[in-house]
Amino acid sequence: MEGKEEDVNLGANKYSERQPLGTAAQTQDKDYKEPPPALLFEPGELSSWSFYRAGIAEFMATFLFLYVTILTVMGYSRSKNKCATVGIQGIAWSFGGMIFALVYCTAGISGGHINPAVTFGLLLARKLSLTRAVWYMVMQCLGAICGAGVVKGFQTSEYQLLGGGANVVAPGYTKGSGLGAEIIGTFVLVYTVFSATDAKRNARDSHVPVLAPLPIGFAVFLVHLATIPITGTGINPARSLGAAIIYNKGHAWDDHWVFWVGPFIGAALAALYHVVVIRAIPFKSKS
């Protein structure tokens, strides 16, 4: 029982929702409670088991995410008859479906980020401390590297021959186009995360916490449909880093900055939109 109490007091749920900024902060007429903003650094987290198990959950989720999705990409790339494979839609479903399943599994432990860009956006919105954000990002990147590494271990020669699922800007598109696609795609994802977990929505619709992974996974699916032809769809720096490190060939690194700068800008814009627009609108449910 003490472990459960510690998880509530010092775990990821401590920063699930934060106090609004702007006009909502001055609104007293509301029927939901929002915890105060996260501190930049909380020494107490470092002595809490929930802090470390949350990082382990992020590692395992990102590992499984890369393992399943990169294998799907390899299966598509291997076939000469693309119509006989899952196709672009199948790849998009693989990414979106895994995010849906993994967010559902890990939301109660770590918040289910599985993406440094999501973690960065939540950090800017003051939903978690810098300490926890850095810990999550490190574990996400390690999990992604291990996941891609296991895929390569299964099919070493084919992995190298087929590109290893590494993200690159497609021929015919400029780096600026790739950067724009990553910014907008990540904005859609992080905006959906903020909206699906908003305290006002939770207060109004009791079923939303259960359904929150669904719109997040669906957002990932739709973004992949739109941007696979442009960049292979990154919107997750850990996913791009893991594939690039394990593939480790020149063209995998040529455009790699796009898959960090774009997602972080998109996440920052989503966090700004959340603070200015979503959290600034007070909510009062009907009596």
Rank of each mutant, 00 (worst) to 15 (best):
E2H: 09
E2W: 14
E2A: 14
G3D: 07
K4E: 08
E6I: 13
N9S: 14
N9C: 06
N9Q: 15
A12M: 15
N13F: 14
K14V: 02
S16G: 13
T23R: 12
A25L: 11
Q26P: 00
K30R: 15
P35R: 13
P36K: 14
L46T: 02
S47L: 07
W49Q: 08
F51G: 12
I56Q: 12
A57E: 07
A57G: 13
E58H: 05
A61T: 10
T62I: 02
F63M: 04
L71N: 12
M74Y: 14
R78G: 02
A84E: 13
T85C: 07
V86I: 11
M98T: 04
F100V: 02
C105F: 12
T106C: 15
A107S: 14
G111V: 09
N115V: 02
A117K: 06
V118S: 12
T119C: 09
T131F: 10
R132L: 12
V134D: 10
V138P: 06
G143K: 08
G147C: 11
G149Y: 07
V150F: 11
V151M: 13
F154L: 03
T156H: 08
T156G: 03
E158L: 14
G163M: 09
G164F: 08
G164D: 07
G165M: 06
Y173L: 05
Y173G: 06
G178V: 09
G180S: 05
T186I: 06
V188R: 11
L189I: 08
V190A: 11
V193L: 09
A199P: 03
R201C: 05
A203F: 12
R204W: 05
R204A: 09
S206Y: 10
H207L: 10
V208A: 14
L214Q: 02
F218E: 02
A219C: 05
L222Y: 00
V223F: 01
A226N: 01
T227C: 01
I228W: 07
I230W: 00
I230F: 00
G232I: 01
I235H: 00
S240K: 08
L241P: 02
L241W: 11
A243W: 02
I245F: 11
I245T: 04
Y247N: 03
N248T: 00
W253V: 00
D255C: 01
H256E: 09
W257Y: 09
W257C: 00
V258D: 04
W260E: 06
P263T: 02
F264D: 04
A267M: 04
A271G: 00
A271T: 00
Y273D: 09
Y273F: 06
R279C: 11
A280N: 15
I281M: 02
F283L: 13
K284G: 01
K284W: 06
K284C: 03
K286M: 05
S287K: 07
